[in-house]
C-alpha cells in the first residue's frame, strides 16, 4: 500500500531553503591545551604516556582511552616520523579544483604510538614514498597562534 498521491510532474516539485546559522568556539581541553601551548611557545611536540598500559599518545591527552585512567604529565618527542600513507588532493571542499594539488599524509610519530594527519611540504608527489622519514616545518614563532596550522607541514628529513 503506497501513499495515495504522487508528484508526477517534476515542475511541481518544490523545496524550501534554509540553513543553521550558528557558529562554534571550541576550547582545546586539558590535554590539547598543553600540546598547542608547547607548539606555540617552544616549538615542541608534547606527548603523554599512560602509566597503566604504556601507550604514548600524541597530541598529549588528559586520560587514557584504553585504561580509562588519568594521565598527568607530558614528555617532549622530536616531532619526526615516518609516512604511513598519503594521498594527493586535487579538489577543494566545494569540489572546485585546487591551484596546486596538496599532499596529505598520515605520519607515524617517533617515540609515540600515534599517527598524525597533516600536509607534506617541500616534496613532489612522485617523490613521496610510504616509509619516508619526515620532520615538521613550523611557522616562525611570532606567527604561531596555538593552532594546527602553526605546523606548515612535514618535509623529508
Amino acid at each position: 500500500m503506497g501513499l495515495t498521491e504522487r508528484i508526477n510532474k517534476t515542475d511541481k516539485l518544490s523545496y524550501y531553503e534554509g540553513q543553521i546559522p550558528i557558529e562554534y568556539v571550541y576550547t582545546y581541553g586539558l590535554g590539547l591545551e598543553k600540546f598547542f601551548r608547547a607548539i606555540k611557545d617552544q616549538g615542541k611536540f608534547l606527548a603523554s604516556t599512560c602509566k597503566e598500559c604504556g601507550v604514548t599518545y600524541l597530541p598529549a591527552r588528559s586520560f587514557c582511552e584504553r585504561c580509562l585512567v588519568k594521565i598527568e604529565g607530558t614528555t617532549a618527542v622530536p616531532g619526526t616520523g615516518t609516512v604511513y600513507s598519503y594521498t594527493t588532493v586535487h579538489l577543494n571542499m566545494d569540489e572546485s579544483p585546487k591551484k596546486e594539488p596538496a599532499l596529505v599524509a598520515l605520519i607515524d610519530m617517533d617515540g609515540t604510538d600515534c599517527r598524525f594527519l597533516h600536509y607534506l611540504t617541500g616534496v613532489k608527489a612522485d617523490k613521496v614514498k610510504v616509509g619516508m622519514k619526515v620532520k615538521p616545518a613550523l611557522k616562525a614563532k611570532k606567527d604561531r597562534k596555538g593552532h594546527i596550522e602553526d605546523i606548515v607541514g612535514f618535509q623529508p628529513s
Binding site: T27, G29, L30, E33, R66, K70
Partner: peptide, 26 residues
C-alpha cells in the same frame, strides 16, 4: 556554564568517578 574540558574529558571525569565509586576498572 563554560568548562575548559572537552566533552570527552568531561565524560572521562564522570566515568572514572563512577568506576572508582564501586572499585571497578574499565
Amino acid at each position: 556554564r563554560r568548562a575548559q574540558e572537552t566533552g570527552k574529558e568531561l565524560a572521562f571525569q564522570a566515568s572514572k568517578m563512577a568506576l572508582d565509586s564501586c572499585g571497578m576498572t574499565i
